[in-house]
């Protein structure tokens, strides 16, 4: 039950885009104007950040409405960038939205590790384990690092080595991102999550560690 107070809209950075805001969205839904809501591209500009719900005195889950509206868009009409990233992640066991294969990931990690060991003093013995069984941490990694800036993985490795953490990457299911969620594709979203969980469980890791 919306009280029409407008706290949602006043705290929403997407208010005003496409002439829409969270209060308007929820009022239109309440007034049976669903057909119009299914047309507005605003649902792809809202980030479903949940701040509107956080400040709502009635805790109305407006982001869930937005998500449902996204689901009503035919898949071919949804933003191509989001759908393509989802599709790419479904095509590889790594779940990488940039389509990185297990062997590519392994190559990048080993190559980068080799470079650090040979060029950085004091890091001759640094490790970045792959597929180690029974580690404390299974670390995930955003695809952007291995693909576009592998040097950015190194500080993370250094920290984990510094504290003596028992950690590993998995060549399967290591990708941190899940664009199928953004694509509002429930089935694919679940498949991606299950692939990742399986990878963590297969290695017997204790904690699935989400990186920055």
């Amino acid at each position: 039950m919306c009280l029409t107070c407008g706290l949602c809209s006043s705290g929403c950075p997407a208010s005003g885009l496409e002439g829409m805001d969270p209060r308007k969205f929820v009022r239109m839904a309440a007034l049976g104007m669903g057909e119009t809501l299914l047309q507005t591209p605003w649902v792809w500009m809202c980030t479903m950040c949940k701040r509107c719900q956080h400040v709502c005195p009635m805790h109305i889950d407006i982001p869930a409405l937005v998500y449902e509206a996204r689901q009503h868009w035919p898949r071919e009409k949804r933003p191509r960038g989001i759908v393509a990233s989802c599709d790419a992640s479904l095509k590889t066991e790594t779940s990488s939205a940039m389509g990185v294969s297990p062997t590519d990931f392994e190559f990048v990690v080993r190559d980068m590790l080799d470079e650090v060991r040979t060029t950085q003093k004091g890091f001759e013995n640094i490790v970045a384990p792959l597929n180690k069984k029974g580690a404390m941490f299974f670390l995930n990694q955003n695809s952007r690092e291995p693909v576009t800036e592998p040097d950015e993985m190194v500080p993370l490795w250094k920290i984990l080595n510094y504290v003596g953490a028992d950690w590993t990457y998995g060549t399967l299911g290591w990708a941190a991102e899940n664009y199928c969620m953004f694509a509002a594709d429930d089935e694919a979203w679940e498949r991606i999550v299950r692939t990742k969980v399986q990878a963590v469980e297969d290695l017997g890791a204790k904690i699935w560690l989400n990186t920055e």
Binding site: G11, P13, H54
Partner: peptide, 25 residues
Amino acid sequence: SNNYCCGGGGGALQAGFPEQRRAYG
């Protein structure tokens, strides 16, 4: 918990609306 979203979430970085994404930001 009360902070604002940066505007890059929910797929916005790949949604193809850069002008609106930056207006949000």
